[in-house]
Simulated scan of single mutants.
Amino acid sequence: MANIITDETIEYVGILAKLELSEEEKEHAKKDMANMLDYIDMLNELDTEGVEPMSHVFPVHNVFREDIVTNVDDRDNILANAPEKKDGSFQVPKTVE
Protein backbone atom coordinates (compact mmCIF):
# COMPACT_ATOMS: atom_id res chain seq x y z
CA MET A 1 0.00 0.00 0.00
CA ALA A 2 2.14 2.85 -1.32
CA ASN A 3 -0.55 5.49 -0.78
CA ILE A 4 -1.21 6.39 2.82
CA ILE A 5 -4.52 8.08 3.52
CA THR A 6 -4.47 10.19 6.67
CA ASP A 7 -7.30 10.97 9.04
CA GLU A 8 -7.06 14.61 7.91
CA THR A 9 -7.67 13.52 4.31
CA ILE A 10 -10.76 11.57 5.31
CA GLU A 11 -12.03 14.55 7.36
CA TYR A 12 -11.45 16.90 4.41
CA VAL A 13 -13.23 14.61 1.94
CA GLY A 14 -16.09 14.26 4.42
CA ILE A 15 -16.39 18.03 4.66
CA LEU A 16 -16.35 18.39 0.87
CA ALA A 17 -19.02 15.70 0.52
CA LYS A 18 -20.99 17.19 3.45
CA LEU A 19 -20.95 13.86 5.26
CA GLU A 20 -20.74 13.15 8.95
CA LEU A 21 -18.84 9.89 9.31
CA SER A 22 -18.48 7.78 12.43
CA GLU A 23 -15.03 6.53 13.40
CA GLU A 24 -15.87 3.10 11.97
CA GLU A 25 -17.01 4.65 8.68
CA LYS A 26 -13.83 6.77 8.53
CA GLU A 27 -11.66 3.66 8.91
CA HIS A 28 -13.66 1.87 6.22
CA ALA A 29 -13.40 4.90 3.90
CA LYS A 30 -9.66 5.08 4.55
CA LYS A 31 -9.22 1.44 3.48
CA ASP A 32 -11.45 1.94 0.41
CA MET A 33 -9.54 5.03 -0.71
CA ALA A 34 -6.21 3.26 -0.23
CA ASN A 35 -7.46 0.33 -2.33
CA MET A 36 -8.59 2.70 -5.09
CA LEU A 37 -5.25 4.48 -5.17
CA ASP A 38 -3.39 1.18 -5.23
CA TYR A 39 -5.49 0.08 -8.21
CA ILE A 40 -4.73 3.34 -10.02
CA ASP A 41 -1.02 2.77 -9.34
CA MET A 42 -1.36 -0.70 -10.83
CA LEU A 43 -2.99 0.78 -13.95
CA ASN A 44 -0.13 3.28 -14.26
CA GLU A 45 2.24 0.34 -14.74
CA LEU A 46 0.55 -0.65 -18.01
CA ASP A 47 2.39 -0.01 -21.26
CA THR A 48 0.20 2.47 -23.16
CA GLU A 49 2.74 3.50 -25.76
CA GLY A 50 1.10 3.77 -29.17
CA VAL A 51 -2.42 3.81 -27.70
CA GLU A 52 -4.34 6.90 -28.75
CA PRO A 53 -6.31 8.72 -26.08
CA MET A 54 -10.07 8.42 -26.43
CA SER A 55 -13.13 9.91 -24.83
CA HIS A 56 -15.35 6.83 -25.23
CA VAL A 57 -14.74 3.10 -25.16
CA PHE A 58 -16.80 2.60 -28.30
CA PRO A 59 -16.44 4.70 -31.45
CA VAL A 60 -18.90 7.58 -31.47
CA HIS A 61 -20.38 8.68 -34.75
CA ASN A 62 -22.71 11.52 -35.59
CA VAL A 63 -25.93 10.46 -33.91
CA PHE A 64 -28.07 13.25 -35.28
CA ARG A 65 -30.77 12.31 -37.72
CA GLU A 66 -31.75 14.23 -40.81
CA ASP A 67 -34.25 16.99 -40.15
CA ILE A 68 -37.31 15.83 -42.06
CA VAL A 69 -40.51 17.87 -42.00
CA THR A 70 -43.33 15.52 -41.07
CA ASN A 71 -46.23 17.88 -40.52
CA VAL A 72 -47.03 20.51 -43.08
CA ASP A 73 -49.05 23.66 -42.54
CA ASP A 74 -51.53 22.35 -39.98
CA ARG A 75 -52.36 25.73 -38.50
CA ASP A 76 -56.14 25.21 -38.42
CA ASN A 77 -55.85 22.01 -36.35
CA ILE A 78 -53.29 23.58 -34.02
CA LEU A 79 -55.43 26.66 -33.41
CA ALA A 80 -58.62 24.63 -33.02
CA ASN A 81 -58.12 24.36 -29.24
CA ALA A 82 -56.75 27.87 -28.71
CA PRO A 83 -58.80 29.88 -26.22
CA GLU A 84 -58.27 33.01 -28.30
CA LYS A 85 -56.81 33.50 -31.75
CA LYS A 86 -56.17 36.45 -34.04
CA ASP A 87 -54.96 36.51 -37.63
CA GLY A 88 -53.98 32.82 -37.60
CA SER A 89 -51.96 33.06 -34.36
CA PHE A 90 -52.48 32.51 -30.65
CA GLN A 91 -53.68 35.63 -28.88
CA VAL A 92 -52.31 36.11 -25.38
CA PRO A 93 -52.77 38.86 -22.81
CA LYS A 94 -50.43 41.83 -23.05
CA THR A 95 -47.63 41.44 -20.49
CA VAL A 96 -45.46 44.50 -21.21
CA GLU A 97 -46.71 48.06 -21.08
Rank of each mutant, 00 (worst) to 15 (best):
N81R: 15
P93W: 03
M42T: 14
S89M: 08
E84S: 00
A82F: 05
S22E: 12
D87T: 02
E52L: 14
K94W: 00
T95N: 08
I4D: 02
E97F: 09
E8K: 14
K86I: 00
D41K: 08
P53H: 08
E23I: 12
T6M: 06
E27K: 15
V60N: 06
R75M: 10
E52H: 11
A82Y: 06
N71P: 00
I4F: 09
L37S: 07
T6V: 03
E84A: 07
N81F: 15
H56I: 03
A80Y: 01
D47S: 11
S55Y: 03
K31S: 15
N35I: 11
H56R: 03
S89W: 05
F58E: 02
A82L: 04
S55E: 15
N77E: 06
I78F: 07
E66A: 06
V57E: 08
Y39S: 13
P93V: 02
V60E: 11
N35L: 12
H28V: 14
E66V: 06
D41M: 10
N71M: 09
N3W: 07
N3H: 11
A29N: 13
T95H: 00
G88A: 02
E24T: 14
A82V: 08
S22L: 09
A34L: 11
V51L: 15
K30A: 14
H28N: 11
V96G: 01
N71Y: 07
Y39N: 12
D32Q: 13
L21A: 09
D47W: 08
N81V: 06
P59F: 04
F90K: 00
T48G: 05
E8L: 12
A29C: 11
A80K: 15
I68T: 12
I40C: 12
V96A: 11
H61V: 12
D74F: 07
I4H: 14
A29L: 15
A17P: 00
T9S: 11
F58Y: 14
E20T: 10
G88V: 01
S55M: 07
D41H: 03
K26T: 14
I5N: 00
K85C: 11
I5V: 12
L79S: 04
S55C: 05
T48D: 02
Q91F: 08
P83L: 02
S89R: 14
V72R: 06
E49G: 01
T6Q: 08
D67W: 06
E8H: 13
P53R: 00
D32W: 10
G14E: 06
I10M: 03
M1I: 02
N3D: 12
E45Y: 07
M42Y: 11
I68V: 14
E23D: 15
G88T: 05
N44A: 12
E27G: 07
S22K: 09
N81L: 15
K94C: 02
Y12M: 10
E49I: 01
M42F: 10
A29F: 07
E27H: 11
V69H: 01
T48E: 11
V69N: 09
S55N: 13
E24V: 15
D38Q: 13
E66G: 09
E45W: 04
E27P: 01
V51C: 04
H61S: 12
F58I: 09
I15P: 00
V96W: 03
V51A: 07
H61T: 11
K26A: 06
E97W: 04
D38L: 06
